[in-house]
């Protein structure tokens, strides 16, 4: 009991009062100061406007990052103040992306200019802010509506980067650049978990690409990896089983059943395989079925089949050996 000091039980400790006042004063002072002298940015994002996008950009390797916003939109301002001031994000955007700020002016001027409106329509932008990561060719990789914090934005950008390989691979497959396609898919699969739905398709595409290149061993390995990790019996697993000769072509079609999208997948990918084996009749039949039954003319299957069909036609026209 001797160590109990004489002090009041009901008075506020001096240290608490002092520190509360000091920090309150500091806070108000700093806030006022920063109002007039905002801290300098060590790094800035160099936003482009839609009309400044060049053809070169569209053919390049950097992904596009669209920031659809409006001047009256408060969450957009918040986003600018919180997420876009991250060093990591600024670095990522400058290195791997072309950052484009698309500002909606419908409220102020009644309508937007053509570039802005085109982009908004293309990506079906309804609310602000909408962030879109897209391939240079225009294919959307991912989007986010609403503001987000630094960590979430960083995740979005990194994921877009990883998925880009998948998209590059698809474009390369369509163009017939099979070596590049094989590389892209293998890189994608290295960085992605197998449960991701794209991984299943990446597996199929990797097998196709390696087969086109005549790399038997690589294609067998890709096939084995894919089958080992893909447990979901839904498509495209049956296609892999067919490639592995575990089921016949007719069995594959039976599994696809009347489901149009499954049939499109079957005809497209087996068609590519037939074309490679120079079984042009069957290949063409498959491709024509896909072309006439596809609703979306921009879909991967439509585009690859139409290109492949074109290649068959020109192969037929030019004499063998050239």
């Amino acid at each position: 009991m001797a160590k109990i000091e004489s002090a009041s039980a009901i008075s506020t400790p001096k240290w608490l009062l002092a520190s509360t006042l000091i920090f309150l004063f500091l806070r108000c002072g700093l806030a006022a100061y920063e109002n007039y002298n905002p801290p300098q940015a060590s790094d800035e994002i160099h936003w482009r406007s839609p009309e400044k996008i060049t053809e070169e950009d569209r053919l390049g390797r950097k992904l596009f990052f669209y920031n659809f916003s409006a001047d009256w939109c408060d969450p957009c301002k918040k986003l600018d103040k919180t997420a876009f001031v991250s060093k990591d994000i600024v670095g990522l955007l400058e290195r791997d992306f072309i950052p484009v700020r698309v500002i909606d002016r419908k409220k102020e001027s009644g309508k937007n200019d053509s570039d802005t409106q085109e982009l908004q329509d293309k990506y079906s932008v309804q609310a602000f802010p909408t962030l879109v990561a897209a391939m240079p060719g225009g294919v959307k990789i991912s989007e986010h509506i609403g503001s987000l914090n630094m960590a979430a934005l960083k995740k979005m950008l990194l994921e877009a980067n990883a998925v880009a390989d998948y998209f590059w691979g698809k474009e390369e497959l369509i163009d017939g650049r099979f070596a590049a396609a094989a590389n892209s898919f293998d890189s994608f699969l290295k960085h992605t978990r197998w449960h991701h739905w794209r991984a299943a398709f990446a597996g199929v595409f990797s097998v196709l690409a390696h087969r086109e290149l005549g790399e038997e061993a690589a294609s067998k390995k890709a096939l084995k990896d894919a089958l080992e990790h893909l447990h979901d019996p839904a498509f495209p697993r049956p296609i892999l089983l067919y490639f592995d000769s575990k089921i016949s072509y007719d069995e594959l079609l039976k599994i696809a059943g009347e489901n149009k999208s499954n049939r499109i997948l079957c005809y497209a990918y087996t068609g590519l395989d037939f074309a490679r084996e120079k079984d042009y009749e069957r290949a063409r039949k498959n491709f024509e079925w896909v072309l006439s039954n596809s609703v979306d003319k921009d879909s991967f299957e439509y585009r690859i089949c139409s290109k492949a069909l074109g290649r068959i036609e020109s192969a037929k026209q030019s004499p063998p050996g050239s």
């Binding site: 009991m1 109990i4 000091e5 004489s6 002090a7 009041s8 039980a9 009901i10 008075s11």
Partner: peptide
């Protein structure tokens, strides 16, 4: 004063 800690002790 009654609120002194020593008093309470």
């Amino acid at each position: 004063p009654p609120d002194d800690l020593q008093v309470k002790a």
